[in-house]
Write a protein that binds this DNA or RNA. Structure first.
Lengths: 105, 105
DNA sequence: CTGTCTGTTCCAAAAATCTCGAACAATTGG
DNA sequence: CCAATTGTTCGAGATTTTTGGAACAGACAG
């Protein structure tokens, strides 16, 4: 009973600015958010700058983003589908996501 | 030769998004930025949520903001004048500061 | 010059975060 | 059912960040 298929996600109202800023303050995590900007992605298709970081590390990066409410991480076949929580973020912190992603180019 | 009057500040071109987001991801530091939004403030006039944190801790919070390029910290009489680096931040990361401060209300 | 006030630096301890191997769970294919 | 694939969780060690006391330095008043 260790790897639940459904992972916990904070609700829109629970999102905090601090957690979002912290999650995106890491270059690797910011790059993940950038990749998801164009649409959902399978985790396997979401690449890190360093291709040989262990999967446990990659999973942890996703966990920080998920717990901050930046991304949604849902089961998808034998893998996982990652989605940017654009609508929730826009509703809670208007313009923030776009501004950050723009600043990151 | 321990407490130089002039502290080092990163130049505009050296500002990084990650450092700025990290600096502002802390509630206490974000609150400091908010106070400076209305104009420069003497350090003594810049209050923390907890009024009895040691001055060394307060100084460290300022250091993180200064090294990220969020604030300028200049000698002013026997104290220090804190200024939000609004123009530099706007030039480097258009809209970012306003969006974050708005999101923080 | 002396004492006071303000705030930085140094240092070490505490706390949080990151990293990654190993074990585990769920899905899919044969 | 069995094996391969994908990705999460756990645990321990490494690294970073935070915290606060003590020492220090500049500015100012008397």
């Amino acid at each position: 009973m260790r790897a639940p298929v459904e992972l916990p996600h904070p609700e829109r109202a629970e999102l905090t600015l601090g957690a979002v800023l912290f999650a995106l303050s890491d270059p690797e995590r910011l790059a993940i958010a950038q990749q998801l900007h164009d649409g959902p992605l399978d985790m396997a298709a979401c690449h890190l700058s360093d291709p040989n970081v262990p999967k446990s590390t990659k999973s942890h990066l996703m966990k920080v983003l998920r717990e901050a409410g930046v991304i949604r991480n849902e089961p998808n076949g034998r893998g996982r589908l990652l989605t940017l929580r654009r609508e929730d973020l826009d509703a809670r912190f208007p313009g923030l996501l776009d501004t950050i992603l723009d600043a990151a180019e």
